[in-house]
Design a protein around this nucleic acid. Structure first.
Lengths: 105, 105
DNA sequence: ACAAGAAGTCAAAAAAATATGACTACCCAA
DNA sequence: TTGGGTAGTCATATTTTTTTGACTTCTTGT
């Protein structure tokens, strides 16, 4: 039933899912940081001192599932994991900028 | 403290407030209907049969407070209240369309 | 061998967002 | 004066999101 409603809602309004995703806590801030350079988990934790592991892990996972970020494992000496903007993520950038501009009015 | 964090968040990411607003339940759907014609409370209730008074009242109030909708009282025989897109609301339209397009990819 | 850093996961608690049902106030028509 | 329509509000549930704190796994440095 809940799923049904969600589906109806999405059908009636395709932007809803994307909006909900981006509005989730820490997501917009993470997206914004991802514009600058690829992200790493613990670095992100340090850059968002009010956030916690779990929240960041969840945000990254959902942004990845929505295909806005891609996760890359870099097989080098200390073994890194990086999250960077996907093509879809890049396509979102100008829209995001427009939103920021509108928000400042 | 909570307020403080919210402020920090907004400072770090100006789009957040607008995103949170639009992602709130029924808001995107209401915004979408407002593109077509001015909205009236009970008509909206009928158009969104899964929603309830309270939610719609809240959504309209918040969209109005965010200055995306303007509320107009029409002093005529049965006394109507209309919600229509403000200038800011109109400025959001193309951004919203872009979001919808991106969501469909 | 032991500690420390990176990248997490899990269950449970707390906080925030939504929904429910009842109730209000105004105007109009029969 | 009773009933119906419009436009809500209020207090209280219920649901969903977000946070907390503890624990895991893998790799490297000393």
């Amino acid at each position: 039933m809940t799923t049904q409603n969600q589906e109806n809602s999405e059908e009636a309004c395709p932007a809803e899912g994307l909006l909900k995703l981006l509005a989730g806590k820490w997501k917009a801030q993470i997206f914004r940081l991802a514009l600058e350079h690829p992200l790493r988990f613990n670095a992100l934790l340090r850059q968002l001192p009010e956030a916690n592991k779990q929240s960041i892990a969840l945000a990254l996972k959902e942004l990845e599932e929505a295909e806005l970020l891609v996760k890359t494992t870099i097989k080098q000496k200390p073994l890194h994991i990086e999250y960077s903007l996907s093509e879809k993520g890049l396509a979102l950038v100008p829209i995001f900028r427009n939103l920021e501009q509108l928000a400042n009015i």
